[in-house]
């Protein structure tokens, strides 16, 4: 019985966004990373080839993150005390991109200064040739104080500046446009809010090929289903031609999974949870792979072994013979 396989045809496609700029293009990156461009749902190779594979970013910090799980501090060792070494280690672990998250305060307890932020960003750029995303601590005034000098000091690098939110996007968008960078928007797990913020930033005139959107996810067990479905809906809308959902999607399964008690702690937990390290890595890996399959273009991870496993999975998802 001959079976005719139904193929979806779509009128819309996901924007193609290139992160980082090489020397030739006015930056200092060793190479660039391009995401997006999809004309169909993730990994449906029999309909359209995947324009760009999903990429894995590794999150590093400007200083030792005191609240991170001991498993993470242990695996990165002394690198966590120096963003440049951490960046190096991350590149060696196989990351495609680096995310530098700036801390709210310095080790002295005072708010992070613009000078310190610029220094950390420059150190990371010097240590690794990977394209870089810089995320501010998430407090409107401080974010703007830190990101503007960072953007100015790295003009032309095509960094991704984050995070633009509904209540605080104007300054970040303006400085990204003025200094040749990209932005990342973030909205709390809602299709409409994601679209709305996309419209707001585009109303300021930033071109679509400079926008990444983070629709936010919960970790496995902590609301992953909402993030998962929001991303599926956004991707479907993008393919159906809704111009305000066509930005490539970035999510942070690493940060979410490692916030979960299941990953973070190894003591005073039920025996039925099993081995701590393996459970934690599985937590991060499954969160990330589920999101990649629902449409994530960039997943931000924290543990090198999860990174390796997600890489194996994404290679497998990409390596599909055309006969299938």
């Amino acid at each position: 019985m001959p079976v005719e396989i139904p193929k979806d045809t779509w009128s819309g496609s996901v924007c193609t966004v290139t992160l980082g700029a090489t020397t030739a293009a006015g930056g200092t990156r060793s190479h660039t990373v391009t995401v997006g461009g999809h004309k169909t749902l993730p990994f449906m190779h029999f309909e359209q080839p995947m324009a760009h594979r999903p990429v894995i970013a590794l999150e590093i910090r400007d200083r030792r993150p005191d609240d991170w799980s001991p498993l993470l501090l242990e695996v990165w060792g002394n690198a966590v005390d120096d963003p440049a070494s951490w960046a190096n280690a991350g590149e060696k672990a196989g990351a495609d991109l680096l995310v530098l998250s700036l801390s709210l305060t310095g080790a002295d307890g005072h708010p992070t200064t613009p000078e310190a932020a610029v220094a950390a960003v420059k150190a990371v750029l010097k240590a690794s040739g990977l394209p870089l995303l810089v995320f501010a601590p998430g407090q409107a005034d401080l974010d703007n104080q830190l990101l503007v000098p960072v953007a100015e000091a790295t003009k032309g690098e095509r960094l991704v500046l984050g995070i633009c939110e509904d209540k605080n996007y104007r300054t970040i968008v303006a400085t990204a446009m003025a200094n040749g960078h990209l932005i990342s928007t973030r909205t709390p797990m809602d299709v409409n809010l994601a679209k709305q913020l996309n419209i707001l930033v585009r109303d300021m005139g930033i071109p679509a090929d400079r926008i990444l959107m983070d629709p936010t996810t919960g970790a496995l067990g902590y609301g992953i289903e909402y993030g998962y479905s929001v991303m599926e809906r956004l991707r479907l809308a993008a393919l159906q031609g809704d111009g305000n959902t066509q930005s490539p999607m970035i999510v942070t399964p690493g940060a979410e999974a490692w916030k979960a008690k299941e990953a973070k702690v190894g003591q005073d937990v039920p025996a039925a949870w099993g081995d701590w390290r393996e459970r934690a890595i599985t937590w991060e890996t499954l969160t990330a792979v589920a999101l990649i399959e629902s449409g994530a273009d960039i997943v931000v991870l924290r543990h090198p072994e999860s990174l390796r496993r997600v890489r194996v999975a994404s290679d497998d998802l990409m390596a599909v013979p055309e006969t299938i």
Partner: peptide
């Protein structure tokens, strides 16, 4: 939520 925007999230 979709309507909580000016004029609407779905501009079309």
């Amino acid at each position: 939520t979709s309507a909580l925007f000016l004029p609407h999230t779905d501009l079309a």
